[in-house]
Design a protein around this nucleic acid. Structure first.
Length: 200
DNA sequence: CTAAGGATTAACT
DNA sequence: GTTAATCCTTAGT
């Protein structure tokens, strides 16, 4: 079933990041349906996280989505090439979000292959925050889209996640924000998935 | 207006 | 390990 807005609007983004593992993310764009199982997430919490402040300065316009109630897609381009898929959480006073770093492709494989320009389903189809967005057809134009359909939504697959199977580790790509930001163990992934991102 | 740079990736040496 | 890719926003002529 589709996750309700209440799921995203709870106050603890770290809890939400953990619970998103194993959920299914679905997009229905241009009449084409694609679905994937979330296997890696990363939490960005305003409180105590220096990287958020820097990011808000740099991405002021698109980041307005972060100042809405939770449950929206926050999409923006980085490094001239890639779109990153975030999910906003909490309420309008707290710009917290969860970055989806990797998924396991489930449905619409041929659509994903075409969008990625690949011939066969392999790990690099959806393992990584930039390529995952591309496979799902997500672009910055969809920034602010509500995650309750009809174009983008998440579904509870009824799959209970064993806490033993969740690994917490430090985040990547934040050297510019200083050691304090990098050290926070706010990246979560499923231990036994072969679809998690290759980044350290 | 032009220039610079980012929560990255793939194709190189 | 190094580097090019070439979008979108901000900062600077």
């Amino acid at each position: 079933m589709t996750l309700p807005l209440e799921f995203y609007q709870r106050s603890n983004v770290l809890t939400i990041a953990r619970e998103l593992l194993g959920k299914h993310v679905c997009t229905h764009l241009d009449g084409e349906l694609t679905t994937g199982r979330i296997v890696e997430t990363e939490a960005y919490r305003h409180e105590g996280d220096p990287s958020i402040t820097l990011h808000l300065q740099r991405k002021a316009r698109q980041a307005q989505a972060l100042y809405q109630a939770g449950g929206q897609a926050y999409l923006y381009a980085v490094y001239r090439i890639h779109t990153l898929f975030n999910i906003t959480t909490h309420d309008a006073a707290h710009p917290d979000a969860v970055l989806i770093r990797a998924i396991e492709p489930l449905a619409g494989l041929e659509v994903m292959l075409r969008r990625r320009g690949l011939a066969t389903v392999a790990r690099n189809l959806t393992a990584g925050p930039g390529v995952l967005s591309q496979a799902l057809g997500l672009t910055p134009a969809l920034n602010g889209e509500l995650l309750i359909g009809p174009r983008i939504w998440l579904a509870d697959a009824g799959e209970p996640i064993d806490p033993e199977n969740v690994v917490a580790s430090s985040r990547v790509g934040l050297a510019y924000a200083g050691q304090e930001a990098v050290a926070l163990p706010w990246r979560f992934r499923l231990k036994n998935s072969q679809w998690t991102s290759p980044a350290k």
